[in-house]
């Protein structure tokens, strides 16, 4: 199908953008950075078009539904959100170095969706339990949340890398990374977006579960893992109120938090539960 063909090409576009951002940081030449932004933007436009196309194709097949219903579609949307949030961040901070640490997530998600033999890109009809408007809001909020946490993960790596910097090294790569306090604040703001969206995701998910299965919370592994991620990020938000808990420790907890998010996303399919239909 056309949409999945376009989407598989976008993997390479994002990879190219990543290489250009890297080139910018290694050489210190702004030209590569601007080119990288341009390539990312083109990729994002094509990505958007492909998602819309997929929606239209599903309607033409007579099983029309918003393209957020299986692992393939969620990965595609995850990559879209990361790229979208990243471009906003680049525009707001006027700094391109984040690209090196964030774009790999986008292209890895695309590559996994497009080239993993376990993931089918076929458009499938919705089983009755998934036919709900809550599904759309649930998936969108969760994935914007996951994407924000992904970006926070990228920023945390930058933070830990930047800490290594010594002025006498005169290393271009390390020098162009923004200062620690800027990274820390930015990370905090991104986590707030993520926390907000994850909370909304959990809320919409439980309202939906209530209408489909009769219980808003059943401690199924996926629910529990999303709660665990939520607790970790609540921890991160509160840790700023305890003296000396900024910076490095926060970056490390963002690592742990994002690992929980990834487990919520992929790992849980190996544990049984209600959500395993989403395989």
């Amino acid at each position: 199908m056309l949409n999945s063909l376009i989407l598989s090409y976008i993997t390479f576009v994002y990879f190219g953008a990543f290489m250009l951002y890297l080139l910018m940081m290694v050489t210190g030449k702004d030209f590569f950075g601007r080119l990288a932004t341009f390539v990312t933007l083109v990729g994002l436009c094509a990505h958007t078009i492909a998602i819309i196309l997929r929606w239209v194709e599903s309607h033409n097949l007579g099983i029309g539904h918003a393209p957020f219903s299986n692992l393939y579609e969620s990965l595609i949307f995850f990559a879209w959100t990361i790229t979208f949030l990243y471009l906003i961040m680049e525009w707001r901070t006027k700094n391109r170095t984040f690209g090196v640490f964030v774009m790999p997530l986008a292209f890895l998600a695309m590559a996994y969706a497009s080239f993993s033999p376990n993931i089918s890109s076929r458009i499938q009809p919705l089983i009755p339990a998934l036919k709900s408007n809550w599904l759309i809001s649930h998936v969108i909020t969760c994935f914007v949340g996951y994407a924000a946490f992904g970006i926070s993960f990228g920023i945390s790596i930058m933070y830990l890398v930047k800490r290594l910097d010594r002025p006498e090294w005169k290393n271009i790569f390390l020098r162009v990374i923004p200062d620690l306090s800027i990274l820390d604040n930015l990370n905090y703001q991104v986590i707030i977006i993520g926390f907000l969206m994850l909370t909304l995701g959990i809320i919409t998910g439980s309202v939906w579960a209530h209408s489909a299965w009769g219980s808003y919370w059943s401690w199924d592994p996926k629910e529990t893992w999303s709660l665990i991620s939520w607790l970790i990020y609540a921890f991160v938000l509160h840790s700023r109120f305890v003296r000396g808990w900024k910076g490095k420790r926060m970056a490390i907890f963002c690592f742990i938090g994002f690992s929980c998010v990834l487990f919520t996303y992929f790992g849980v399919n190996y544990l049984a539960g209600l959500h395993s239909y989403a395989k």
Partner: peptide, 8 residues
């Protein structure tokens, strides 16, 4: 968080 992991 840690005890919830146990339960999964």
């Amino acid at each position: 968080a840690v005890t919830s992991i146990l339960g999964t």
